[in-house]
Design a protein around this nucleic acid. Structure first.
Lengths: 145, 145
DNA sequence: TATTGTTATACTCTATAACTATA
DNA sequence: TATAGTTATAGAGTATAACAATA
């Protein structure tokens, strides 16, 4: 029955993501960009290589993403005091504000969708949220199949 | 408390999508491509303009996507017998097979993640699946905020 | 004249390969 | 020699604008 759960879950996830992203603010933040900003907000700062690894992006890809975010004044680069090769990426105030706006927009869309469900459905989803959070965090490298 | 639900849900969705997509088969199907194939499997065939509307893509974008899928022998174009301007897009056998493979891969990844949760969490997610399905289908144009 | 679809073009995002600088 | 990051380059994906064909 677990196979059924995974099979059912994927299309729902994909559809929800597309609905939310295309419905709401065209603020130009990709999912990865959003994740990086969220991680910087939670963790204070991060190395390029660490961000690349955690977000499953290539190192050049992360360099480029950080470059775009920096050009938009959402993050800044500071030299790593402990390693002359390294760079620490920090959230700017503008980045923090943008992150809040974007998350609020997405949340509003989801809440609109949720408001169209009946009380039982909303309760079921609310009850599953902690488990879904843990599902995401159960994210050590998956090599299925 | 609904605001909290939406706020909690979005990061989970984004992270899950990225984990699943980057963990598994690099088969080159975008989320939209996957959704189109799934829709064609369910619905038999579809017009370009209809697919574009339903998947919230531009019409040229859908033309291009169908072009890529056609080049990969996953779909074929046939003239609409009732409208000389129209094109019907149909799934090929190869497309059906590819869709099955891709969905199985995603499902396997999700099932691997699910298997790491305890029984209560799995039950909570399973219980929320029907509601999540309806959440997606509650997808008439959302203009939140 | 409106609708369906395509072509032309441009931009974002991300990857691999090659390179520089520091450890 | 290995690691951190960047630059160069290429390809996928998608958008808007302009166009062709049919209704």
């Amino acid at each position: 029955m677990d196979a059924t759960a995974g099979t059912q879950l994927m299309p729902v996830l994909a559809q929800l993501i597309r609905v939310v992203r295309q419905t709401d603010a065209p603020d130009g933040l990709s999912l990865v960009a959003l994740a990086v900003l969220r991680r910087l907000e939670a963790g204070g700062s991060g190395r390029i290589s660490e961000l690349a690894r955690v977000e499953r992006a290539s190192q050049p890809g992360m360099t480029q993403l950080v470059g775009r975010l920096e050009r938009a004044d959402l993050v800044r680069r500071v030299p790593d005091p402990h390693d002359g090769r390294g760079v620490l990426v920090e959230l700017t105030d503008g980045g923090r504000a943008q992150l809040a706006r974007t998350q609020a927009g997405y949340a509003a869309t989801l809440d609109t969708l949720l408001s169209r469900l009946d009380e039982d459905d909303r309760a079921a989803i609310a009850a599953a949220l902690p488990a879904l959070g843990r599902l995401v965090r159960a994210d050590t490298p998956v090599r299925s199949a």
